[in-house]
């Protein structure tokens, strides 16, 4: 199994670009999805006022 240099370059330049774009899109969609807003706000707030005891 011998991978030639130019094969690797072609793979990195084609697939590499698209999978990074796709991952960026997924991350952005997740972060900006309106339905997630209340969950994120709650998460940010909850650490400020925590009762100093584990729930279990």
């Amino acid at each position: 199994m011998d991978i030639a240099h130019h094969t690797l370059v072609a793979f990195a330049k084609s697939f590499g670009l698209f999978y990074l774009l796709a991952m960026a899109a997924v991350a952005l969609l997740y972060a900006c999805w309106p339905g997630n807003r209340s969950r994120f706000d709650k998460a940010a707030r909850d650490i400020i006022e925590d009762e100093d005891k584990p729930w279990r």
Partner: peptide, 27 residues
């Protein structure tokens, strides 16, 4: 992201930004 908001007594400015930043840094 834990001690700064906790010490300041204020939630992080933008939770969304922290998530986008996280994936940006890891990618």
């Amino acid at each position: 992201y834990y001690y700064l908001p906790k010490r300041a007594g204020r939630p992080i400015y933008s939770y969304r930004m922290s998530i986008i930043g996280f994936w940006g840094i890891t990618f």
